[in-house]
Design a binder for these strands. Structure first.
Lengths: 192, 192
DNA sequence: TGCCTAGTGTGATCTACATCACACCAAACT
DNA sequence: AGTTTGGTGTGATGTAGATCACACTAGGCA
């Protein structure tokens, strides 16, 4: 995809929370780099350093934790217009505990922690943007935790179908199961 | 507790992430109000508006969701030096879906959303502070979700004892169970 | 003094869900 | 054309943990 088009996506995304002049946005975007990945490729790998936060332009990814027994738990799914990283490792600049992989060909814009902090310190609006984003993410995770405590597998599944219908169509059920913390067999037995 | 002492706690707390001059801090603290609550009292009640984010000076509180069957799920526990609120309702200025109650006498400093946003827009350091706090909270919740997916009740319990030993001592097991998403009977059967 | 409430332990039973095992199908590589 | 890979369904069986029921203790309050 054309770099210009990619930045347009980013501009629209920022525009949902803040308004930047073209000059300001040009400056902001100069701190991002663009990358492409193929299906099955790793953006982040357990044990390796995490260089970037990724803004998804195109494609579908997951961040997941693989435990000692080789069982995989999906922490996050991400598609167009979403951000994804191993945030624990990214913010603390430690090694990844998660894997991030593509299950479609993917195009992302990459933001290093240094550039993120630089932009935040230089531009109040950017700091505002990321603060709001983080708050929203916190709330979303709280809802997910409540869902774990309060709902059965079937209820969580239907909730997911409702909230993210587009995701549910693109993501194989096996992975939805892993996101929901249910075995794929159990999910398969649930009425659609 | 003396108001001066309360603000000292807050100052120390801010000091962990940012440094403010005495004048700056005086200005910041003027946006907080102090309140006391007795054991069993509600700070936030399901269905009511949420006026504040609360910084705990003293005491022990919980935020919890009570479902239709009257079953309670604890979303957050908070003690000295922690913040607590119904953030979904607070940030979106909607009605609470959670209850927040004390199980000890409590003293808090209260910050309205308007004052929070005012401080954030006026003082870069404050916005930085809350951005970092939110990031840290996000990461903590991710860990809790992984714990739900990857660990048994017994493992989650021992993890909790390790990470928050002080909490585990002050909070009755019945409530720890509810925080962990386990029945109190099951928790009671786990070897300490 | 006696009652009430909060917190805890423990047995018996029930159930949601995991696990194991196998079979089927479609797309992708070779 | 044949084989591997990824996704899915479904039966049989096992188990962690929920639920129900009851009993015990200690502190707060009438």
């Amino acid at each position: 995809m054309d770099l210009q088009v990619m930045f347009d996506e980013l501009k629209t995304h920022f525009g949902k929370l803040i308004s930047l002049t073209p000059e300001e946005f040009a400056y902001v975007s100069s701190h991002f780099t663009s990358r492409k990945f193929r299906k099955h490729q790793f953006l982040v790998q357990q044990g390796a350093p995490v260089m970037h936060d990724f803004f998804v332009i195109k494609g579908l990814l997951k961040s997941s934790f693989v435990n000692e027994q080789g069982k995989e738990h999906i922490l996050q799914l991400a598609m167009e217009d979403w951000w994804i990283s191993d945030y624990q490792a990214y913010f603390n600049q430690t090694d990844a505990t998660l894997d991030i992989t593509c299950f479609e060909d993917v195009e992302v814009l990459c933001l290093s922690l240094a550039n993120r902090e630089k932009l935040c310190s230089e531009m109040h609006q950017i700091e505002y943007f990321f603060r709001k984003k983080s708050n929203a993410g916190y709330i979303a995770l709280q809802r997910r935790i409540l869902s774990f405590m309060n709902h059965s597998a079937a209820e969580r599944y239907h909730e997911l179908l409702q909230i993210y219908p587009s995701l549910a169509q693109r993501v194989p059920k096996t992975l939805l199961a892993s996101y929901l913390g249910v075995s794929r067999e159990t999910l398969s037995r649930l009425s659609a």
